[in-house]
């Protein structure tokens, strides 16, 4: 087991980092959605109607 871990340490660590990044993005997107922000990613601050679709600043 230890030998297998040692052999695949690089893969395990990089996979863990990638997984953390993926989960963080998912959490970020879900929070944005809960805040009423669109997943479009567009910054509509210049639009006079932005208060309508992006409820909170």
């Amino acid at each position: 087991m230890l030998q297998w871990l040692a052999e695949n340490l690089g893969t395990i660590l990089i996979s863990a980092v990638l997984l953390a990044v993926t989960v963080s993005i998912c959490v970020y997107l879900i929070r944005q959605k809960q805040k009423g922000k669109s997943s479009c990613g567009c910054n509509c601050a210049h639009c006079a109607m932005h208060g309508q679709c992006h409820g909170k600043p």
Binding site: C42, H46, C53
Partner: peptide
């Protein structure tokens, strides 16, 4: 015009 940036505010501007 607004839709050239992003379609969503463009759709909203139809109000």
């Amino acid at each position: 015009l607004i839709g050239t940036g992003c379609g969503i505010p463009g759709i909203m501007a139809s109000r």
